[in-house]
Write a protein that binds this DNA or RNA. Structure first.
Lengths: 202, 202
DNA sequence: AAGGTATGAATGAACG
DNA sequence: CGTTCATTCATACCTT
């Protein structure tokens, strides 16, 4: 981007980037994807209107392709533990309900790597989630001795300690109602969308 | 030996991509950038038109799926930085990785308050978290030899796992200009993002 | 095919 | 400051 702070892989077939750069890239693309989805929605509606007026029939593009192209990159693929890995994880979890230390994580990761691709982050997340889940189940049962664990919105009565200075009611309700003021489809949007249908051959 | 000072399972510090993947990414971004440029143009054009005609009649596509997101109000108690705020925070973080002083925090808070409700505590926490996260990512730089283990994972079983990335069976197109693979698209990026204040569900 | 559920991942906030 | 908790989001998988 601005300056050459990337460590180029010596001009070979690979480039190296840090996780942060990766993450930044991913977010940027995600934003673009969102924008484009909205654009496509607008365009579809607009086209429908035109069609209604007898102007034009059929859409020259299809969004499925767009979506696929977008999600190819804009989405994050998530790790799915293999049965063998899961078994090992469960075993370890029984022994030590506490969160394994960094060192332990590394060890476990190496162990699980025998059965499939995995990273330390995956292991870490797994234990965190596992723990949280266990805790939640308990709190759902405890409230009353009766087995009223049916779907009640009320579950954990925790002391929600809120910072006095941080008393911010939900102001984040940013209405994006007035953000769609571009309803002019006359620009060559079709071409743009068409381009996206073949990202490999652009 | 390396297990002595590795911070934590923060995943790999670097990712390696092939030229084809890189190229695909570059194209994708280029397309997005183009589309967004067009979006901005459209917006300008449309605004001018509306101003001329003064016709503010109900847009049929004024509420596709975006305004439908206006629900779930008053349910968020935790601060959620808006994209615009995030952008600013990231910028500041790059300049000064050190902990911002008390005064600096106040300043940043005031700045961010322009884009939404925020408190100094939020800013403080954000920087703390950001820093911690960065540190975690510095470990596990070189697992062993081939880092391409993220792609070569093969499951002989009938794994239903959909492989989101397809790589090599492609013709090596491009001795392309490898100068900027991800340039921060400044084309009204902030503005665009600003319009998409809440990409989530709200 | 659509909707629900389980669960991996992200992150703001709290704790020591 | 580093680690952990709690909540939420996104997605894979399952059910009808």
């Amino acid at each position: 981007m601005e300056e050459g702070n990337f460590q180029n892989g010596g001009g070979l077939g690979v480039k190296v980037m840090t996780d942060e750069q990766m993450e930044m890239l991913r977010k940027q693309i995600a934003v673009y994807a969102t924008i484009c989805e909205q654009l496509v929605e607008m365009h579809k509606d607009l086209s429908a209107q035109q069609e209604f007026a007898g102007m034009r029939l059929g859409n020259p593009y299809c969004d499925p392709l767009l979506s696929s192209a977008v999600h190819k990159i804009g989405s994050r693929q998530r790790w799915t533990p293999k049965p063998a890995q899961l078994q090992i994880l469960e075993q370890i979890f029984e022994q030590c309900n506490a969160t394994p230390g960094r060192q332990k994580i590394k060890d476990i990761t190496r162990e699980l790597a025998q059965h499939g691709q995995i990273s330390e982050t995956n292991v870490y997340n797994w234990f965190q989630n596992r723990r949280a889940r266990s805790k939640r189940k308990q709190s759902a049962v405890v409230p009353n001795n009766g087995e009223s664990e049916m779907e009640t919105e009320n579950e954990s009565f925790k002391e929600k300690k809120t910072r006095p200075e941080d008393s911010q009611p939900d102001e984040n309700t940013t209405p994006m109602a007035d953000q769609m003021y571009f309803n002019n489809p006359d620009i060559g949007f079709d071409q743009l969308v068409g381009k996206m249908e073949s990202p490999g051959e652009l």
